[in-house]
């Protein structure tokens, strides 16, 4: 009995030591769901760049999940150096509830702290059997729509707002009819996953639903990973300009002494490397001149409404109005049976 126990004790010792004795700098980037592939490549590139610049080694660790859920874990104490979330409101929540990020964080980096943007498109099954061309087709009889839950997912909030923007245009701002349309849309949703990637897997791998409301980059990725023989992208007449922002979590970085490298990491997102890598991963780069024109040519032209449009009045207004407790989404959403 003593011998195995001793082995066990040594094993535990080794395991504990090896997790704590990493001499190199480690950054933690807490991100939302669909950025996995982009940051995997970006982190490797940044580590190399940082090593060339300073001779130091840096490892960037990732945590992915629904944007709202990720913000929640940072608020609860996950010590992220950097947050790269799906929407401003989630970083605002961290800033206001913990004070770990200053309130004016958006002004600290170029392009309102959004190094890449994206939009919402439709992914349908090959041949588009339900003939889906625009937002109004989503509420036709027998069409099942897949989107994550706007309460937990940033992408889902953009989906919701894009649908709202369409309805606003279609019904010339008649709020009653807009609500009716968005409510009907969610009546067509059989499963509400917590994050964008969960929804994509539900639609693409498990074969549920007729149309997926997806981040443009997520839709392209599904085409690449599962195959263009199975799906096609449908570009609606109007959509929303989604600006997923990034921020330094000052208090955490200062505590760990990683501010310098964390700031360099964020600035590197705006470098030619970061921008072209974003375009390669189907994010629309903030500065297209730095990206490969061939990558840029893949992005379709869509009429894009921004969150700062008077229709929404910015995140500070849109977040509580639509997604807060008892907000419009709560009022119109009835789970489908």
């Amino acid at each position: 009995m003593t011998l195995p126990l001793r082995h066990l004790a040594t094993g535990i010792g080794i395991a504990l030591l090896s997790t704590s004795a990493l001499a190199e700098t480690t950054l933690l980037n807490v991100s939302y769901d669909p950025t996995r592939e982009f940051y995997k490549a970006f982190n490797a590139g940044f580590a190399e760049h940082w090593n060339e610049e300073t001779g130091e080694r840096v490892t960037v660790r990732m945590s992915h999940g629904g944007s709202g859920k990720q913000a929640r874990t940072v608020i609860d104490g996950l010590d992220a150096d950097i947050v790269t979330l799906a929407l401003e409101a989630d970083i605002d929540a961290i800033a206001s509830q913990t004070g770990k990020i200053p309130a004016d964080w958006r002004q600290r980096l170029p392009h309102q702290s959004a190094p890449y943007t994206s939009t919402i498109v439709f992914l349908v099954r090959k041949g588009n059997p339900k003939g889906i061309a625009d937002w109004d087709d989503l509420v036709a009889d027998g069409v099942e729509v897949i989107t994550p839950n706007p309460k937990t997912s940033g992408g889902a909030r953009w989906n919701y707002l894009a649908a709202w923007a369409y309805a606003d245009k279609a019904f010339a701002g008649d709020e009653e009819k807009i609500r009716g349309y968005v409510s009907a849309l969610f009546q067509h949703v059989p499963v509400l996953d917590t994050g964008a990637r969960g929804s994509t897997i539900t639609f693409a791998q498990r074969g549920v639903g007729d149309v997926l409301l997806a981040w443009e980059n997520e839709a392209f990725l599904a085409l690449e990973e599962i195959g263009p023989d199975s799906f096609e992208i449908v570009v609606p007449s109007i959509s929303i300009l989604a600006e997923p922002p990034v921020a330094l979590v000052d208090a955490n970085a200062d505590k760990k002494g990683t501010r310098e490298v964390a700031e360099a990491y964020l600035h590197y997102l705006y470098s030619p490397f970061g921008q072209s890598l974003a375009a390669e991963n189907h994010y629309r780069p903030a500065d297209p001149s730095l990206a490969d024109p061939a990558d840029l040519a893949r992005f379709p032209d869509i009429e894009l409404v921004t969150i700062d449009d008077p229709l929404f009045g910015g995140w500070a207004k849109a977040q509580p109005t639509h997604f807060g407790e008892g907000g419009v989404f709560d009022q119109i959403y009835r789970p489908m049976n």
Partner: peptide
């Protein structure tokens, strides 16, 4: 239970 408290940091 682990999923809730882990923070999902890859490799950690």
């Amino acid at each position: 239970a682990v999923s809730v408290i882990s923070g999902h940091i890859r490799g950690l």
